[in-house]
Simulated assay, not measured.
Amino acid sequence: MATIPFVKMNGAGNDFVVVNALKTPFAPTEAQVRAIADRETGEGCDQLIALEPSDTADVFMRVWNADGGQVETCGNALRCVGWLMMQSTGQDRVTIDTLGGPTTAWSVPGRVGSGDPEGSTSAAQIKVDMGPPRLDWTQVPLAEEMDTRNIELQIGPIDDPVLHTPGAVSMGNPHVVFFMDHAPNDGFVRGSGSLIEHHPLFPEDVNVGFAHVVAPDRIRLRVWERGAGLTRACGTGACAALVATARRRLTGRHAAVEVDGGLLQIDWDEASDHVFMTGPVAVERTGTLTL
C-alpha cells in the first residue's frame, strides 16, 4: 500500500489535489481518482493533478476530473502548478506541458481585484499564456459543421427556448458558452449543464458556461465543468467566455471575469491571437494519500 504526499491548492476556488510524480510514477485508477476527489470520504477536489517529467518543458501536468477521467488541461491548475514550480526552482517563469499543449506561467505584481481567495499565497498574481483559441468546428470539436460564433443548440422547447445559439470554443478542451441577461442559480446550472455536457453535438463532451455580460470589460460566469460538475471557477471556461463574448461584440478583448470563487483577468491579444489569464493561487494544506 503506497503512501503519497500531496498539496491541496485552489485557483479562485477551483480546487486541486497536486501530487509530485517527477521521480515516482503515479497512475491511479478511475476508482481511486473518484475516491480521492470525493468531498465526504476523500480529500475532496475538482481535479487531481500529477506533476510528471517532461523532455520539452519544466514539467508535464496530468489532469483527472473528479469522475476519474483524464482531460486535456485545466487553466486554474496551470496557475497553481506554475506557482509551485517557480517556488521549487527559483525561476520567475516556467513552461508546463499538458495533453492540450504547452503553456508558460509567470508571476506578475498587483491584484485582479477584491476576489482573491482568503489565504492567497502572495499578493502577486500568476499569469499563464493559454495560447490561441481554437475556433473551427473541427477543433472544438463539434459533430457537424457550424459557425462556432453561434451554434445551433438550444435549451427548452423548440418554439420557446430558454437559451439558444451559444458560442463554441476550445481552449485545449471543449467549451460551449450561453449568453444570459443574469447569472443563473445553482439549480439551473446543474440541470442545464448536465443536459448539455453529453449532448451528441460534442463527441468529446463539453464544459458548459453561462455568461452574463455586466459591462464591456466585465463578465459574470458560472460553469458546469465536464466530469466535475458545478465548480467555483474554471480557468479555461473564463478564457472561452471572453473569446465567445468578444466574437459576438458583447465585450472587448479584455475583461475581468467574475466566477463564484473570485476574479480572473482575461486578455485576448490581437497581435499574437493568444489568450492570457491572470489570477490568484492559494495553498490550503498538505497531506498524504494512501493507495
Rank of each mutant, 00 (worst) to 15 (best):
G110P: 02
G110T: 05
G110D: 04
G110R: 05
R111K: 14
V112W: 08
V112A: 11
V112D: 10
V112M: 11
G113H: 03
G113L: 03
G113E: 04
S114L: 11
S114F: 05
S114W: 02
G115N: 02
D116A: 15
D116M: 09
D116L: 06
D116P: 00
P117Q: 05
P117I: 09
E118D: 13
E118C: 00
G119F: 11
S120I: 10
T121N: 09
T121Q: 11
S122L: 07
S122P: 04
S122H: 14
S122W: 09
A123C: 01
A123D: 15
Q125H: 06
Q125K: 09
Q125I: 07
Q125P: 01
I126N: 07
I126K: 07
K127G: 00
K127F: 01
V128T: 13
V128M: 02
D129E: 09
D129V: 06
M130I: 03
M130K: 01
M130L: 13
G131E: 08
P132G: 13
P132A: 15
P132N: 08
P133Y: 06
R134S: 11
L135Q: 05
L135R: 05
L135G: 04
D136S: 12
D136W: 00
W137P: 01
Q139G: 14
V140T: 06
L142G: 07
A143L: 12
A143P: 05
E144P: 00
E144C: 13
E145I: 02
E145G: 00
M146Q: 15
M146R: 07
D147P: 10
D147K: 08
T148R: 08
T148V: 14
R149Y: 01
N150L: 03
N150S: 15
I151V: 14
I151Q: 04
I151M: 07
I151F: 07
I151P: 02
I151C: 06
E152I: 11
E152Q: 15
L153E: 09
L153F: 09
Q154S: 10
Q154Y: 06
Q154A: 06
I155K: 01
I155G: 01
G156W: 08
P157T: 03
P157F: 04
P157R: 07
I158W: 03
I158A: 15
I158M: 08
D159R: 10
D160H: 13
V162G: 00
V162E: 13
L163M: 15
L163Y: 14
H164M: 10
H164F: 13
T165W: 13
P166C: 09
P166Q: 07
G167Q: 07
G167S: 15
A168Q: 12
A168P: 11
A168N: 12
A168I: 12
V169K: 03
V169G: 05
S170G: 06
S170N: 04
S170L: 05
M171Y: 14
M171W: 13
N173V: 02
N173G: 03
N173C: 03
N173W: 03
N173E: 03
P174H: 03
P174G: 03
H175G: 08
H175C: 08
H175N: 13
V176Y: 02
V177G: 01
V177Q: 00
V177C: 05
V177F: 01
V177E: 00
F179D: 10
F179A: 12
F179N: 02
F179I: 13
F179L: 14
M180A: 12
M180V: 07
D181G: 11
D181R: 13
D181T: 15
D181W: 09
H182F: 11
H182A: 14
H182G: 00
P184Y: 04
P184H: 05
N185C: 11
D186L: 06
